[in-house]
Computed example of a mutant assay.
Amino acid sequence: VAAGTARGAQLGVLFRSAGALEAASSIEVACFDKTGTLTAGKPAIIGVHAADDRMLAYAAAAERSSEHPIARAIVDGARELVIPEAREVVATPGSGVQAIVDGVRVLVGTAEFLQLAGVDVPADDKFPGATLCHVAIDGRYAGVIAVADPPSGEARAVIDRLRAMNIDAIMITGDREAAAQWIAGQVGIERVHAGVRPNEKAAIVAAEPRRVAMIGDGVNDAPALASADLGIALGTVTEIAAASAGVTLMRGGIGGVPTVFALARAALSTIRRNLVGASIYNVVCIPIAAAGLLSPILASAAMSLSSVTVLLSSLRLRNWPPE
C-alpha cells in the first residue's frame, strides 16, 4: 500500500487512504461531470440575445463572486462594460444565482430556475451545443447568454483508455440535454444524464449497481463524490469537493484518471501475490522447522528472507510505468 501510494504521488495522484486505493482497484463505472471536467474549463460567450440593455452587465454583477467556469465566462464577456455592485447574492448549486443589483432583483441560471421564480422563459434553440444562461431583471425576462466550452483535449483518449480497461463512462451534468449530448458525442460517451441537480447526481451514483467512481471539480459535485464508492477530484477542485473525494489528481485535468485505476489494480495484484507467496512459504517451511530438520539459525534466516522477498516485491511498484 505504501509503495503504491508513493508511486501515485510521483505521478500526481494522491490517494488519501488505503481504502481509496483498494476501492479504485475494483471500479467498473466512471461517472464524469461535464463543465470543467470533460470540457476544457475555458468557456466563452458565443451569443447574447438581450431584451434589456442592462442584461449582460447585471448578469456579470450577480455572477462576479462565483468560481464556476460559466460564471467566469459571463464576467469576462462583460469586462468592457460598467459592472455594478451586487448584494444579497444567493447561489443555488446546479440552478443559478440571484442578487440585488442597482436596487432590482436579478436572476441568472437555467430556464427552470427562472420559471420557479414565476418568470416566463421563451424557447431558444439557436445554440444547440451551448449552455444557456437565462436572465431576469425585476421579475421580467431580460434575455439569454449562450456559453460554449469545448471538450478537453485529453477527454477522448481518457474515455477510450477506460473502455479498454472495461470501465464504462457516464456523464452526469446539470446542463441541458442538447449541450450535454454534443460534448458526449465529441468524447465518446454514450450514456448521459442531463439537467440533473446536485442531490440528483448523488442519487444516480448511489443507484448504480456496480462499483462506481465519480470524477468532478466543483461544489455541485460534492454530494456525488461522497456517494460514490470512490470520489476523484481534480487539482483545481474546490475545498468542499476535495474533502468529499478519496483521490485527488494534483496535476489537474482528467488525464490521470486511467492511472488511478491501473495503479490501484497493480498494487492490489502485488498485495495478493505477496500474500499467496508468503502463505506458501510458511506452509512449507514451518513444518520443516518444527520437525527439527532446520537449525534455529537457518529457520530464522529463512523467515527473514520471506520478509525481504515480500518487501522487494512491493518496491517494484516504485518503478511502475503508467501506460
Rank of each mutant, 00 (worst) to 15 (best):
T238W: 12
D217R: 00
G118Q: 06
I232L: 04
A289S: 11
V106M: 06
T35K: 13
D53S: 15
L56A: 10
A9D: 10
A60K: 05
Q115W: 00
L21Q: 02
L249C: 08
A130D: 12
A157I: 09
A291E: 08
K42V: 14
C285A: 15
H193E: 15
A206R: 13
M250Q: 05
I46H: 06
V260R: 04
A226R: 12
M250S: 07
A6Y: 08
T131E: 06
A30I: 04
V108E: 12
I27G: 09
E28S: 04
Y58P: 05
E67Y: 02
V147M: 05
I70T: 14
A111T: 11
A136E: 09
L81G: 07
R191A: 10
G252P: 02
I280T: 01
L14E: 00
S306C: 14
V283K: 14
V192G: 02
D175Y: 00
P296S: 12
L312D: 00
T236L: 05
L312S: 12
I46Y: 09
E208K: 03
V90Y: 00
I240W: 05
A146I: 13
L114C: 03
L225E: 07
A57S: 14
T248Q: 01
A207S: 13
N319R: 15
F15Y: 13
L249T: 09
R272D: 04
I45S: 03
F15M: 02
G96H: 03
A179Y: 08
H134L: 05
G246P: 01
G8H: 01
T110P: 00
K42G: 11
L107V: 03
T110L: 06
R79W: 06
A117S: 08
E22H: 02
G12W: 11
V104S: 06
A180I: 06
A44P: 09
G216C: 11
A130Q: 01
Q186N: 10
L315R: 06
S314W: 00
A50I: 04
G77A: 11
R316Y: 11
M171I: 07
R156Y: 14
T35Y: 11
L162A: 00
N282R: 10
V101Q: 09
G174I: 03
A62E: 07
F113N: 02
L317H: 03
N274E: 06
V247E: 02
V308S: 03
F261E: 08
A184V: 06
E112V: 14
V310W: 10
W320C: 04
A23P: 03
R16L: 05
G246Q: 08
R210K: 07
C31H: 05
G143N: 11
A3Y: 02
T173G: 10
Y281I: 04
